[in-house]
Design a protein around this nucleic acid. Structure first.
Lengths: 297, 297
DNA sequence: CCCGGGAGG
DNA sequence: CCCTCCCGG
């Protein structure tokens, strides 16, 4: 019956999320993954391609499996759609959900409740977007550190360049104007091409690109890569670094420092499809002493 | 019979050219048009849209009619094609013809033999053109003044911007490096947008845009204007100053000075079509004293 | 030879 | 959500 199927489906999704969840014990042995006690802040940013209606169930299951496995402190999602959001909310009940809209597709910030304390949130409009895009901001506290978390899905396509750069300037402005005691992390699908950032004169003072800070590792460069990802059936091999993490360290207090960045969602599902046409970014951060100081401790 | 038709057609074209030719007497009364004795140098530059195969005969007849009427000293044509060139050469036998190629479409310089003495010519390649474009140069003598005449059809379309600017730099370089005793006139279809010239830092020292020198007259600004010209059936009204005349005055000797610029080909033919999708530019120049000196003579 | 949108690769 | 080509406006 439909009812039985639905229950089975629901169970299957719950299982995908919870069966892979790391116990605190196993997580403690893996510094790039989160446990209740870890001092690492872990962040995932991922455009989950909610506009693609193919293999939705399998992809959602794959997504839940990876989100359960990594159990990140903060999850930034782009292209959420109402039905998927509802399911994620229902299953990932250890997270607090913030959403930037409730119609069409939108971004969300997921906060792991046992690790991160929610303080307040804000939705910033892009006045000239033609695609309903905006900036979602959450102020939170992590191990006593005030954090400003932001996500956005900047205007898409090459033709959206002008508007995209308007939006990027606005993002950077909000990052710069966040309270001085806050560390600021922006993660999202920027749709940026490198020449566009160059056109703006590069990153503004005080804002850094986490991928660059980590030495531009080639293996986590391209987050949209049709040489591997064939969800969109694009015959040409095109690789772009659409998804980016920016940080601004707090003026006072412990300094936020990126430790690692890896891509997730690289494995094909059994249905011969990827979870999304974008890879996800999994990023870890530490507060406090510099690398040198920490090593000599 | 076909033979009769051809003869009639040929006669019709010859008539179009010669019947409108000004006599020296009437021309002397119109300073903007050329007579054998006039000290005005008259130049026409025109992209005659050889790639449009509609109404070819009528358009050629209209072209010949206008070229006969103005009887310019120098005619710079873009988008000549072999069959049209052959006809023009045959009928306009009072001109010497230079052509930049003999296949596809190409530019030409027509020199009125009783007024302008041909010295030499040169074809300069654009190494990276994807449209077979080049620069055609003629060194001539007009009333004892050495002149360097240039024409080109720079890379077309918005997408050709980068290559077009490469070509423009090359044109300007050749203008600057012409012998110091020569006045240099470039006329052609530059396909330029104003922002592109701005991007290059404006016109280089020593090179002037004739339309600007004449005070930017609004009535001869746009040489490609779909608000009037419907040859291309473009419903949007778009007006661009694609066709331009540049000059560089000689370092020594009499200085070349533009006197007037008007657009030609603005009238529709009986077949409800224009001669070209571009207007032609008719320009007059004078050598010698400045305006003030000449007036007080 | 403008612009934008849609299809196909 | 890449690119190019084609078509209609």
């Amino acid at each position: 019956s439909k009812s039985t199927q639905t229950k089975q489906s629901s169970f299957s999704l719950k299982q995908a999320y919870w069966e892979n969840s790391l116990t605190d014990q196993s997580a403690d042995q893996q510094k790039t993954q989160s446990s209740t006690k870890s001092s690492y802040l872990t962040v995932i940013s991922w455009n989950i391609d909610g506009l693609d209606s193919d293999n939705v169930f399998n992809r959602l299951k794959g997504l839940l499996s990876l989100l359960g496995k990594h159990h990140a402190d903060v999850v930034l999602l782009q292209e959420l759609i109402p039905p998927s959001l509802k399911i994620l909310e229902n299953i990932m009940n250890d997270y607090q959900f913030l959403q930037a809209s409730d119609e069409d597709y939108f971004t969300g910030i997921l906060i792991r409740k046992d690790r991160v304390q929610f303080l307040q949130s804000n939705i910033v409009k892009y006045p000239t977007t033609e695609m309903g895009r905006n900036l979602l901001i959450a102020n939170v506290s992590f191990l006593g550190h005030p954090l400003c978390i932001m996500t956005s899905h900047l205007e898409s396509c090459k033709t959206g360049s002008q508007e995209r750069l308007n939006q990027l300037r606005r993002v950077w402005k909000w990052m710069k104007e966040a309270p001085g005691d806050h560390s600021v992390i922006f993660g999202g699908d920027t749709n940026l091409r490198d020449w566009e950032v160059k056109k703006l004169g590069g990153l503004p003072d005080g804002i850094s690109d986490v991928w660059e800070m980590l030495g531009k590792p080639e293996e986590s460069r391209y987050t949209w890569d049709t040489s591997i990802n064939d969800n969109n059936e694009i015959p040409n091999s095109i690789r772009l670094r659409f998804d980016r993490i920016f940080i601004r360290t707090a003026a006072d207090g412990a300094k936020l420092r990126p430790e690692s960045m890896t891509l997730i969602g690289l494995e094909k599902l059994k249905c011969d499809y990827f979870i999304s046409d974008h890879w996800g970014i999994l990023c870890t951060f530490l507060f406090g002493a510099s690398e040198e100081q920490r090593v000599t401790d």
